[in-house]
Each structure stands twice: as C-alpha cells, then as structure tokens.
C-alpha cells in the first residue's frame, strides 16, 4: 500500500523540529527509521499531513559514555548499538539484546528511541532497560526531564511522553564489576511472545537481583515480589528457591491468548525465561564468560 501524500520536513536542528511541531500540531509526526511509522501510514491506521525526519538533527545522534552512564542518542539504530565497541564494553547485555531484534533490515534503520516511543508491547528493549535502571531523557522547547525507563511505557502504544516532547537520549548505567544482566526472549512469530530481563548485583558479599518481564503485558512487568524474596540469597542457593517463586509469580500475571500463544503457555514461558535469564545474569556477574549470542 502507498503512503497518502504528505509534506516532508528535514530540519537539522532541534529548535526547528519544535517549531514545525508547534506550527502543525496534530497534523505532524516526527520519525527516525520509519520502520514503525511508515508501516502504520501505509496501512492507513495513521495519517499525517506533515512528516518531520529527525535523521539530520545532530543533537540527537551519537553513542557515548558520560560519567557512569552510557548515552544512546535518539538516532542510534539497533544495528549501531549492537556493533558499538563502547556499548559492547560497558553494557554488553544491551548490545546483545540489540543484535537479536527483528532482522537486519529493521535493525539497520530502526532506532531505540523509535521503538520506545511507539511502545508496541511485543518489543525487546523496555524490560532490560528497566532492569538496568536506565532512564529516558525527554526534551521540549521549555524543558528537559529524565524519566526512569521503568516508568516510561504505561500501556499499549502509550508512554508518559507529552505531545510537545521528544526523546533526546536513553541513559544506561554502566555495568560494573560484580554485576551481570541478561535478556532472553521466546516466540515463534516475527516478534517476541515473552521476554525476561534479569540482573545480578554482587556488592560486598551481598547479592541483589533484578527481574522484569516484557512483551506479554502492555508494559514491562516488574517481578518485585520475586526480587524481594530472593534479595540476599547467594547465587549458589538460588536454584533452591527461585523455581517456586517464578512459577507462582508467573501464574499471577494477566496474560492474553493470541497468535503468540495461550495465556497459560505465556505464563509458563515467563517463569522459564525468568529462571534462565537470572542464571545467565548471575554467571555474567561472577565474571564467567558467557556467550550472548
């Protein structure tokens, strides 16, 4: 199907983007890779008179380390992230996740910011970003604010971003020695049915864990109850307590039956993936070399 006619804008500065957005209001949308937006426009589920291409806005580009955080600019594609030496070195688990998104065509055009803004539930990044304590930086003509990734997505295709705001960057705390993260997903269709993200943080003999689930709800789900129950449990003893907790938590998640699978199967996958992801995160934290492939 074809795109309905629209006017194309190619600003090179953020201020010009905001001007265009202010001028055209509801009739305008920004885009980066266009992998989501253009499909929606072609399917005629969305329609805009004005499309604003962000790709030339230099302020949104780049991947760098800033203090204790990795900063991923809004224009960074999944492919760039997956192959960036800085990302691989400082947040290897996130680089690995990026390499597993969709297919090479989508990865080389699609951006992380576009993925988060669109907030299609069957996505990979949100749960791991939440588990890693990442944040999303939003800018408007007036202000700049930071929102924890864990709170950014509130529902299907809905985020806390205001109409006049753009994602400027995503900030991920650098993974330090004694920490490990891992994202695992499963599905037999194009996009994941269920994803699980786990973290293991070993500090001075005390171990804490992070556990989030993705794709099966309309926003990332925090397995807080499991995290609390296993806080302080040494890695070696996890297998004694985790399975029961994971199964019990998963069985309470409200999942829906659809093409990806029945609700109870998805709950089961959630418990399996939580356990596997946590085991892998622990291995990474204790410095074991694990392949992220």
């Amino acid at each position: 199907m074809f795109l309905a006619p629209f006017k194309h804008h190619r600003p090179t500065e953020l201020s010009a983007v905001f001007e265009a957005l202010a001028k055209y209001g509801d009739e305008a949308a920004v885009y980066a890779g266009g992998t989501e937006l253009l499909l929606a426009l072609k399917a005629r589920v969305l329609r805009y008179e004005h499309l604003i291409d962000l790709k030339r806005v230099r302020e949104l580009a780049g991947i760098k380390v800033d203090g204790e955080e990795l900063v991923i600019g809004a224009l960074a594609t999944h492919h760039e992230i997956a192959n960036s030496a800085v990302v691989k070195q400082h947040v290897p688990a996130y680089a690995a996740l990026s390499e597993g998104i969709a297919n090479i065509r989508v990865r080389s055009a699609g951006t992380l910011a576009g993925n988060l803004s669109f907030s299609e539930p069957h996505s990979d990044p949100p749960s791991l970003l939440a588990a890693m304590g990442a944040s999303v930086t939003l800018v408007s003509p007036q202000a700049r604010r930071s929102v924890p990734a864990a709170e950014f997505i509130v529902g299907e295709f809905t985020t806390v971003r205001n109409e006049d705001e753009l994602i400027a960057e995503i900030r991920i705390p650098l993974t330090r020695a004694g920490e490990g993260y891992r994202y695992l997903k499963f599905g037999h269709l194009e996009r994941p049915a269920v994803g699980a993200s786990a973290g293991c943080i070993i500090r001075g003999g005390h171990t804490r864990y992070r556990l989030w689930l993705g794709a099966l709800g309309d926003h990332p789900i925090h397995a807080a109850e499991v995290e609390d129950a296993i806080a302080g449990v040494p890695v070696a003893l996890l297998p004694d307590v985790l399975p029961k907790l994971a199964v019990s938590f998963a069985s309470k998640i409200s999942a829906t039956s659809d093409l990806h699978g029945s609700a109870d199967y998805k709950q089961h996958l959630a418990s399996v993936l939580m356990q596997r992801a946590l085991a892998a995160a622990c291995a990474a934290a204790s410095g074991e070399r694990v392949s992220h492939a």
Partner: peptide, 24 residues
C-alpha cells in the same frame, strides 16, 4: 513448524507478512 492462516469470526487475522511466519 509455524505456518497457518488463522480465521477468527470469518476474518483471516494473520494474512500479513509480519503475522504470517515462514521459516527464515
């Protein structure tokens, strides 16, 4: 392993390249 055109209420619900999955 994966292919099936699914009908629900008389509608083919996965007749698109994204929802109908052929082996890669």
């Amino acid at each position: 392993l994966s292919e099936e055109l699914v009908y629900q209420d008389g509608q083919p619900i996965n007749a698109t390249m994204i929802d109908y999955h052929v082996p890669t």
